[in-house]
Simulated scan of single mutants.
Amino acid sequence: MIGFGDIEQAIKDLCDQQKSSGKWSWLATVRSYGGEFDEDLLNIVKRTPAIWVTTTGDGAPKKLAHNKYQYFIKVAVMVGSSSKRNEEARRHGAGTDIGSYEMLTEVWKLFIGNTLSKADIQGLTPLVLGRTKTIFNALVRDQSLSVLAQEFTTSFIITASDRDRDEQDEEVGEIRKIYTDYYYQPSEKTPEDEADASDVIHLKE
């Protein structure tokens, strides 16, 4: 069964593959997002060009059967670049420095419609492009920092085991009789009181 961690790791693995193949030779850091943006921004600058990945649920699952659900996922791929030149350079790039806009374009090309099957993920619907958000446009000491977050949505099917359901059905068994107690003044009675009358209803097979 697919999990959040599997999807997140698969995206990081594909980014690493791009780096090791030389297609993304500019990439310095790939990691899961763990609150780095709450740290000193200078530490983020030192890791750029960088990609951070985080995964979360996206709305309520859709029930398909008694033990089957379609589970919706939102993935955020964040790209970060920095430059000592100026604000424009951190977004557009300059010289050998890649900008956050170009990084975002590379992420689009790699992940739009991707099922992550090349990272050994099976059963995931193709990634659908979502919103792009600006996380940072900041000046940190003598460097400009730009971080953009690109959202993707996808889903997979969760199928629960029928074992527990089958065991429960076996324990309940077939209902043949229904026992009923009657209280003539129920407002004055409690379940511990003796019933005023009782009956047994026999069900036909």
Rank of each mutant, 00 (worst) to 15 (best):
Pro126Leu: 03
Ser117His: 08
Gln70Pro: 02
Asp166Ser: 04
Gln70Phe: 04
Ala10Tyr: 03
Lys133Glu: 13
Thr48Ala: 13
Met1Gly: 12
Ser146Glu: 03
Ala160Ile: 07
Val140Lys: 00
Thr180Ser: 11
Leu148Arg: 00
Val45Thr: 06
Leu124Gln: 06
Gln122Asn: 10
Gln122Asp: 12
Gln18Val: 04
Ala28Phe: 01
Cys15Gly: 10
Thr48Trp: 03
Asp6Val: 11
Ala28Gly: 04
Lys118Arg: 12
Thr115Lys: 07
Gly123Asn: 09
Gly57Lys: 15
Thr56Gln: 15
Asp193Cys: 03
Ala195Lys: 06
Gln70Ile: 07
Ile7Asp: 09
Leu129Asp: 13
Gln143His: 15
Ile51Arg: 04
Gln122Glu: 12
Thr180His: 06
Thr29Pro: 11
Ile158Phe: 01
Ile157Lys: 07
Gly95Cys: 02
Asp120Asn: 15
Ala119His: 02
Asn67Ala: 08
Asp162Ile: 02
Pro191Ile: 03
Lys63Arg: 09
Asp166Arg: 12
Leu14Thr: 05
Leu129Tyr: 06
Tyr33Met: 06
Trp52His: 11
Val77Gln: 03
Ala149Trp: 06
Gln168Asp: 08
Tyr182Gly: 11
Ala60Lys: 15
Ile73Thr: 06
Asn114Cys: 09
Ala60His: 10
Ile11Tyr: 05
Leu64Arg: 14
Thr159Ile: 02
Ile157Val: 14
Ala138Gly: 00
Glu188Ser: 14
Asn114Val: 04
Gln18Asn: 10
Glu205Thr: 04
Glu205Pro: 00
Ala197Gly: 07
Asp196Tyr: 05
Arg165Thr: 10
Gly130Arg: 06
Gln143Arg: 15
Asp196Met: 10
Glu194Trp: 00
His202Met: 04
Val128Met: 10
Glu39Phe: 00
Asp16Asn: 14
Ser144Val: 04
Thr54Asp: 14
Thr105Lys: 14
Ile121Thr: 04
